[in-house]
């Protein structure tokens, strides 16, 4: 089985695992069991009727914006552990919203690259909407709002907003400017995803920003055997995240999809937990 098929199957399995309560869509109710106290490694709205786990970005804001706490050790610890173990492998192989964007990218059209400057926007969103606003913009009771979920998150609109408003007439009557704004962002994300590979992951996702920073130290990583590399540039041309794996194998943009390793004619790139290229490994096996 080639890498692309294996990745797609794992993405579908992860999508299924995070949406096990599919029957809830018809009634528009949420799963309320104990699994909801655990976070999903990928971005998936906990107000999605099928969701099994909690969204880590939503959970981080909810705890930090609550009356009792200003910071979530529980969620930050979870993200740190997942990020150090896997880095942006989560984005490439597990995240449900990543899979959705990849499916839209399959629509035949002219494909574009984004200027690198756009990739820095997600760090601003992480700092302002996820870390600062939920703690500082509080009401008289000291409770903050989950600003990223409230004003930006297109995953919440797609998996939570649309199914819930479709099944609850009383919620439909309360839709207004905010719902329109979020629908606009969702529409923009979907349209942009047709032309730009993983537009949201590249530009807006705060979870991608966290895992991207941890790509620098993650145990799961890309390894390039510089002695085997013939500088053909095939890996960089193959990469849809616009990364050159030879010069920056630990780039914050790399989602560890493995397309570069599969494309390398010299097997100089390896994706995994161990150090050393595939070629070096074969060499050791043969000696």
């Amino acid at each position: 089985m080639n890498n692309a098929v294996r990745r797609k199957l794992i993405q579908l399995a992860a999508f299924g695992f995070t949406n096990t309560h599919i029957g809830n869509f018809a009634a528009g109710k949420l799963y309320t069991g104990k699994w909801k106290q655990f976070c999903n490694p990928g971005l998936h709205c906990y107000s999605c009727p099928a969701a099994t786990l909690a969204c880590p970005i939503g959970a981080m804001q909810a705890v930090a914006g609550s009356m009792q706490f200003n910071f979530s050790f529980y969620v930050v610890g979870f993200l740190l552990a997942v990020g150090v173990l896997l880095g942006r492998f989560v984005c490439g192989w597990i995240c449900p919203f990543g899979l959705v964007q990849e499916l839209f990218y399959k629509i035949p059209s002219h494909k574009c690259k984004l200027p690198k400057l756009f990739t820095y926007v997600k760090y601003g969103i992480l700092i302002l909407f996820v870390i600062v606003l939920p703690v500082t913009a509080t009401n008289y009771m000291g409770m903050g709002q989950p600003a990223f979920c409230q004003y930006i998150c297109p995953s919440g609109t797609l998996f939570g907003g649309i199914p819930m408003t479709a099944t609850h007439p009383e919620l439909r009557t309360t839709t207004g400017f905010l719902f329109g704004l979020k629908m606009g962002i969702l529409l923009l994300t979907i349209i942009a995803s047709v032309f730009v590979f993983r537009f949201f992951c590249k530009t807006l996702c705060p979870l991608g920003a966290i895992y991207g920073l941890l790509n620098k130290v993650s145990i799961h990583h890309l390894d390039v055997d510089k002695s085997a590399c013939i500088q053909c540039g095939k890996c960089a041309r193959t990469c849809k995240m616009d990364v050159n794996p030879v010069t920056s194998p630990r780039s914050a943009e790399c989602i560890r999809c493995g397309a570069c390793a599969a494309a390398c004619p010299k097997q100089a790139i390896r994706l995994g937990f161990r150090n050393g290229s595939k070629k070096e490994e074969h060499h050791h096996e043969n000696t």
């Binding site: 949420l30 799963y31 309320t32 069991g33 104990k34 909801k36 106290q37 655990f38 976070c39 709205c45 906990y46 107000s47 969701a51 786990l53 909690a54 969204c55 939503g58 959970a59 909810a62 705890v63 609550s66 009792q68 706490f69 979530s72 050790f73 529980y74 969620v75 709002q145 989950p146 979920c149 409230q150 998150c153 919440g156 609109t157 939570g160 907003g161 819930m164 408003t165 919620l171 309360t174 839709t175 207004g176 905010l178 719902f179 704004l181 979020k182 629908m183």
Partner: peptide, 22 residues
Amino acid sequence: RGEQETVWNKAANICLECIGLG
């Protein structure tokens, strides 16, 4: 500190902010 209870409370109820109504 009991943070997981706060996560569960938020995740097990409709989050109006998340769905664009809050």
